[in-house]
């Protein structure tokens, strides 16, 4: 396995104001440090408000940390060099409801070429698997949520990213849709892509990742390889966090 660092976060702190009118801030990320090597698949678990989304946004360059350092493949988060090497699948699919399947993919393909990115065709089969049964001519407004999510996954893959961020990718999908997402993520792992996934599902984390990190109140409470931790241990950990919260 390559030892290049895909994600490097050191002592990241972020706090938000409780109310725009008040100066008082509450911390969301507390000195969070994390390092992910290339080709590793990492799942971030945690209760609501643990800081998972804020941390992902900071890695994507959408939120600026108060202090600390974040690098993506040794480039600052949010920089053009970092942006070129990553793909992002959000929880809510990106919808351009007036475009058909192919127009949608063509539009984003042209955005990639605008950015000067060269594409490797190794993922073409996977993309075809994803979009195979999505109607070619119909506009996106007529698609089901599963179709939209799969089309968005194809959008992410056509960029051929080395690092893929997935935010709750299976939320709202039926069991077959969820299984499909797990299958695609595992195929991407085989192809050596680095995967960073935010999820609430312990099963998804254990099935689709090499490593699992549990966040609570902006801190890492567990960071283990999936093979070293069982489902029941993770469940007990969550129940423990829940009792702290209540």
């Amino acid at each position: 396995m390559s030892s290049e660092i895909a994600i490097f976060a050191s002592q990241v702190k972020k706090s938000f104001r409780k109310n725009p009118r008040h100066k008082e801030k509450f911390p969301v990320l507390n000195n969070l440090s994390l390092s992910v090597t290339k080709s590793q698949s990492i799942a971030i678990l945690g209760p609501n408000g643990a800081g998972k989304t804020t941390f992902m946004k900071a890695l994507l360059g959408l939120v600026f940390p108060d202090s600390g350092q974040i690098q993506i493949f040794s480039h600052p988060a949010g920089s053009q060099m970092a942006r070129q090497r990553l793909g992002f699948l959000s929880e809510l699919p990106l919808i351009l409801d007036f475009l058909s399947r192919q127009s949608f993919l063509n539009h984003f393909a042209s955005l990639i070429s605008d950015a000067g990115h060269s594409k490797d065709n190794t993922l073409d089969t996977l993309i075809q698997d994803l979009i195979g049964n999505i109607p070619i001519d119909l506009p996106m407004s007529s698609y089901s949520k599963g179709m939209m999510q799969r089309l968005n996954f194809a959008r992410v893959l056509q960029k051929d990213p080395e690092l893929i961020f997935l935010d709750e990718p299976a939320t709202g999908l039926d069991p077959i849709g969820q299984l499909n997402i797990v299958r695609i993520v595992n195929r991407l792992r085989e192809l050596g892509r680095t995967i960073y996934v935010n999820t609430h599902s312990i099963d998804f984390a254990l099935e689709a990742a090499d490593r699992v990190v549990v966040l609570h109140q902006g801190r890492i409470v567990t960071d283990q390889m999936c093979k070293d931790i069982s489902r029941s241990e993770l469940e007990n950990l969550f129940l423990g966090l829940d009792s702290i919260r209540s």
């Binding site: 946004k57 994507l60 360059g61 959408l62 949010g78 053009q80 942006r83 990553l86 793909g87 992002f88 959000s90 809510l92 699919p93 990106l94 919808i95 351009l96 984003f108 955005l111 990639i112 605008d114 950015a115 992410v156 960029k159 990213p161 961020f165």
Partner: peptide
């Protein structure tokens, strides 16, 4: 509002 901005800015354009 429609969740496009995060995707455009994080992955495609400055």
């Amino acid at each position: 509002k429609e969740n496009r901005l995060m995707i455009f800015l994080s992955t495609y354009v400055s």
